[in-house]
């Protein structure tokens, strides 16, 4: 007991400044904590307000939207509030059809994109391919070419591709993919960024696991399917989101290659509201409707998305 008192006494002077330091650190931490929260709340408000404005405006008539612009009322559901704009959206645009089209196009692009790009990345990461560094560099180099420069030549190319359609005489071969669903999907399945992302993630998975699997007689495809892919959840989630967003937001391409209204995706629908007299309330209602699936998807994959970004160092 005495020993312990001495020990305490001996320790006390040395620990005294420590205690002071600890208080300072705690205070500093509290200050940073409060500041951090203020910053976070500020950023949340900053990012949330446009969405809030969009939703609130979707409930107001056009004249009120512009009348409220110079005050905080622009963000509040007050005044002449109704769901009229939502009803009008479905009169002006086949919104349900466009939504179903976009969900289908995006879902197939994502599923096929995950398969094709992960297979390419797996080959480059795991298999013995001569010149694979050069191949990967060339794939990544394609990222610097903006799509807009390729769009018109690509229109010409897809118009040369063979296709077939069901007619009253059975299946007939035709020329050209213009005005089809596949022309909105297939050109966007292979994606350099997704290959790169999968490749980086696969590199972090120990190669010993492959060797162990090979010892058990597994082939490359089985290693891919049963070893590497099950361990790549965060990368799959990230690729899913990063493939889904451009597929969902696709505008220029469908504009150029889709002629039939029944095949159009949601983003082309936005332009339906920009007539000589713009219906702003309807624009906001339609924008709210087409934003919901994106928000839902992000919430569903949020944890995996953040994990993947943290582990791959990619700031998508």
């Amino acid at each position: 007991m005495a020993i312990s008192n001495v020990a305490i006494a001996e320790v006390a002077p040395a620990s005294a400044p420590h205690v002071v330091l600890g208080r300072k650190t705690a205070k500093k931490k509290r200050v940073i904590g409060v500041g951090g929260w203020i910053l976070r709340i500020g950023l949340t408000v900053l990012f949330l307000f446009p969405i809030l404005f969009m939703f609130v405006s979707s409930l107001k008539p056009d004249q009120q939207i512009f009348g409220d612009l110079s005050s905080i009322a622009a963000f509040l559901p007050i005044g002449n509030i109704s769901m009229d704009n939502y009803a009008a959206v479905f009169d002006r645009v086949p919104a349900a059809r466009f939504l179903v089209n976009s969900i289908g196009i995006s879902a197939i692009t994502v599923a096929a994109g995950i398969l094709v790009n992960s297979l390419a990345a797996f080959a480059l990461s795991r298999m013995r391919v001569r010149g694979k560094t050069i191949i990967l560099t060339l794939i990544i180099a394609t990222l610097i070419v903006p799509f807009e420069t390729l769009a018109l030549p690509l229109v010409w190319w897809v118009n040369q591709l063979p296709s077939f359609e069901l007619t009253e005489f059975g299946f007939m071969f035709t020329k050209g993919w213009i005005d089809t669903y596949q022309v909105q999907i297939i050109p966007f399945v292979a994606n350099a960024f997704s290959i790169y992302l999968f490749h980086q993630y696969f590199e972090s998975i120990p190669k010993e696991l492959d060797e162990a699997a090979r010892m058990d007689g597994a082939g490359w495809f089985r290693i891919y399917r049963q070893v590497v892919m099950p361990l790549s959840g965060p990368a799959i989630a990230t690729v899913a989101i990063l493939t889904f967003l451009p597929a969902w937001n696709s505008y220029l391409w469908p504009l150029m290659v889709v002629q039939t209204e029944e095949l159009r995706p949601v983003m082309v629908g936005v332009q339906y509201f920009f007539q000589l007299n713009v219906s702003w309330g309807e624009v906001m209602a339609y924008s709210t409707l087409i934003t919901l699936p994106v928000v839902a998807l992000f919430i569903a994959f949020q944890r995996s998305f953040v994990n993947s970004i943290a582990s791959s160092g990619v700031k998508g």
Binding site: L152, V155, W156, N159, G176, I178, D179, L252, L255, M256, V257, Q259, T260, E261, V268, G269, Q271, Y272, F274, Q275
Partner: peptide, 21 residues
């Protein structure tokens, strides 16, 4: 009758002309 939104109509026509459609 096939309707296109006005803001993007010219682009659609030019793309269709390029592909003979």
């Amino acid at each position: 009758l096939q309707a296109f939104p006005q803001a993007s109509y010219n682009d659609s026509v030019i793309a269709a002309a390029a592909s003979g459609k």
